[in-house]
Amino acid sequence: MSTPRIRMPASAKAGEPIEIRTLIDHPMETGLRQQGGQTVPRKMIVRFEALADGELLFAADFRNGTSANPYLAFIARFEKTTALTFVWREEDGREYRATQRISVS
């Protein structure tokens, strides 16, 4: 549960546009849904951050309209070999992390 997945190339040329695709298994419960006459408790990832060598590359603030298992794709460029960190944060502060490295020539 809540396993993050990152799809991106392991290497790239300097400045080349690179697509980064991210996905995490998560129900993204809004607290509005009913099941068997009961309200399913709210459980939401509210923030996603992609950091490149510690600098913010891309972030998302999720609200109710974001699907379960939130998927995001964005296009970055790197001038040098970079360490990437991906963080998903639930409303109560719980975090899920993934790391990736891209070799730039």
């Binding site: 400045g15 080349e16 546009p17 690179i18 490149a52 600098e55 913010l56 590359l57 891309f58 972030a59 998302a60 603030d61 999720f62 609200r63 109710n64 309209g65 974001t66 964005f74 296009i75 970055a76 460029r77 790197f78």
Partner: peptide, 12 residues
């Protein structure tokens, strides 16, 4: 609200 995305300078 659906989502807000923040775009850093490192994006192509």
């Amino acid at each position: 609200g659906v989502a807000s995305y923040q775009l850093g300078a490192g994006l192509a």
